[in-house]
Amino acid sequence: MKTAVIRTSLSLGNVNLVLGLLLAVFITSVTLIGGSLVPHDPFQVDMGNRLQNSSSIHWLGTDQLGRDILARLVYGAKLTIGLGTVAIVVAILIGVPVGLISGYIGGKVDAILMRIVDGILSFPDFILAIAIAGILGPNLTNLLIAIVLVRWIVYARVVRGLVLTEKQKEYVLVSQTANSSSLKTIRMHILPQVIPDIIVMAAIDVGKVILLVSSFSYIGLGAQPPIPEWGAMLNDGRSYFQVKPLLMVYPGIAIMLTVLCFNLLGDGLKSHYDIRRGRGRI
């Protein structure tokens, strides 16, 4: 099926989607099987070999404690990307049902849910996440909770807006006159129209959240040493930046490529769905 997507995308000139998919294949394979190909332990300290340059043994050199950088990058990929994906999936699982209920039922339920959302939305999300992570204590689980708490509202808002337009459609009214339950009407007629938009949003959002996770680790509220999360690696490398700038360049490139991949996927999927809906090309 993937090749089919690529073929139709190529024929329509959807470069974003193709590049995004290729990058995704690369990043996924590195994340999943890279660990077994790199012969070093990401946690193995070797003070005799600190700050080494690239060599045939350590392809990307070693850090200030003599740990293999490639091994740490590959190990960190699982953490960073995994955390970003899990955070968005959980945010969707909370936000989408809230948006569906709020938009479809309307009235008081809608008013109450949306005031809660407005309340959370009125804080800058980064500051709010810092506050939450700060109160709960700095570790990856709490960071995940903080990110979910600030991201689910975005999905609730967007989905509610989509539902408000969808429920005016005549086939939704027809479904009601056929005495379908609200749940059935939503499942049969509203959710399928909303899903493409959620997928596009999620793809771009995973990139954002990866940046957020890395930023948090960089300021010391996310992954704690010696965990090789990419943001934490940036933070570790900071003190040695003048001696060995590559310590910060490698995780920086990893973050950049991953975020780029998700943004390309998001943009590509958006034009892919827009074409299918006949909204014109890219």
């Binding site: 005549e170 479904s175 049969m188």
Partner: peptide
Amino acid sequence: FQDAASALNPKLPIWKSLLEPLKN
């Protein structure tokens, strides 16, 4: 309904739309 086109969900095949009332 008035608008024949918008009374049918564009993402469902005809037979699924047709059977919605009977299923209920």
